[in-house]
Amino acid sequence: MKSRKLTIPYIIWMLVFTMIPIVMIGVTAFTDKNGAFTLSNFNNALFYTNVFTKSLFIAFISTLICLVAAYPLAYMMTRMKKSTQNTVIMLIMIPMWMNFLLRIYAWIILLQQNGPIDTALSLLGIHGTYIGNTGAVIAGMVYEYLPFMVLPIYTVMSKIDNGLIEAARDLGSNSTAVFRKVVFPLSVPGIISGITMVFVPSASTFLVSQYLGGTDDIMIGDVIDKVFWTDQNTGSAISLILMVFIFIFLVIMNLFGDEEAIA
């Protein structure tokens, strides 16, 4: 009984800041400017299908790169001395103390013409443009969301009982087999929550592409932002579709791992 009472503030919080806004988006998406029921907002939203696909594609690639980069790092971290582990975690966290927009500005300076990267590569005889394309957007996203991939995988991996690994070795597994049969399967929940934490925000992000991308890299988050200027109804419809997609994605992720992995 007592624990019930303690949950009340959280329930109110969820109600006010999650449920009511979602209902409001739902209502706005299905009504027109005068408040009458309509489906035309979804018809308008269909125009942005290509932006939608591109956003999901960019989010997918960013998540993949994050996973490929983060997994070995997390694995290596679990093999380090405890004190080194703490230092490494610290180093991963420090950039997150700074505002996200400032870090994107830093990327602009890094990638721009005659910026450090351009200058260094020019000295080697390589000339090119490094900003204003999809690659730059993906680089910004990977940089932004990498810690969200490393940390859950690391947390899950560091909890793996060393006894299991020793047992596998005693039973004749070489290190590849230990990794394949013990470490990897036990780290799946970490991978799943990592993917969720990277994919969901990167699919809906905005500003990154406005700062790092070119004219063709507009993402669905930017479209929602711009459409909302004058047309809240269509904006809500696009948001709702995005939410449904993310929900489907979460359900699929759910099928792969056990439920607790998904926050």
Binding site: K226, V227, T230, D231
Partner: peptide, 15 residues
Amino acid sequence: VYTYMQDQFVKIQAK
């Protein structure tokens, strides 16, 4: 007309 303008401008950017 203004709403239409805004709408078309977003569409130019999105295509």
